[in-house]
Design a protein around this nucleic acid. Structure first.
Length: 195
DNA sequence: GTACTGATACTCT
DNA sequence: GAGTATCAGTACT
């Protein structure tokens, strides 16, 4: 299993968003590995993308989007849910990829416990749900994804699949931009994404 | 099956 | 003080 390095993230946000599909998101919790395959992502830029937090310039919250690629940007939203993003582009250029859905791979029991459900299709099929299942919270903001606790790896499997792009979800601006990407036919793609 | 609503707390104006 | 990169539950057809 190959961990993705800084160079992987230091590219155009759309390229990274597509390249992340099929990769494994791994989080070590209490010496246990919790992992899920990324099946759905969304790209967010800075300038020129009104849907992005970074579009209005740097704030204390979105600062990490302007910093080095390969870091986690965890954003708390709607009072309940955290969103997990991966910072992209070179330092000084804002950009991030929102991980919208995972396919559970390792530590499924742990995920069930965290999500309090036995429905394995309902564990990680949404951005708010997957952070709960993997125990990702605001303390993981600015976590270095090239480290050993929280990282993304390529296990070499699932090389061949079809990528579908469509409109982004849950936002009210720039709806016409096709910046959401998912693996065609995968049952773990988020509910809200279908249709 | 689809459509709408409320919960909730953090961040920026 | 208003808005938010969501979800689950309820009320319909």
């Amino acid at each position: 299993m190959k961990k993705l390095n800084r160079k992987f993230y230091c590219r155009n946000t759309v390229i990274v968003a597509k390249a992340l599909l099929g990769k494994l998101l791994v989080h070590k919790v209490d010496n246990k590995k919790i992992a899920g395959r990324i099946v759905e992502t969304e790209a967010y830029f800075g300038k020129g993308d009104p849907a992005s937090h970074a579009s209005r310039g740097v704030t204390p919250r979105n600062k990490v989007m302007f910093e080095k690629p390969g870091y986690a940007y965890v954003y708390f939203c709607y009072g309940f849910y955290n969103m997990f993003n991966v910072v992209t582009e070179k330092e000084g250029v804002p950009g991030a990829v929102l991980i919208r859905a995972l396919e559970p791979v390792k530590g499924v029991d742990f995920m069930r416990k965290m999500r309090k459900t036995n429905d394995s299709f309902n564990l990680t099929n949404g951005p708010g749900k997957l952070t709960l299942a993997l125990k990702i919270d605001l303390t993981k903001n600015k976590e270095d994804l090239t480290g050993n606790k929280l990282f993304i790896a390529d296990d070499g499997k699932k090389k061949y699949f079809k990528i579908v792009s469509s409109k982004r979800i849950g936002i009210n601006v720039a709806k016409d931009k096709l910046l959401r990407f998912y693996i065609k036919g995968n049952p773990f793609v988020s509910k809200m994404a279908k249709g």
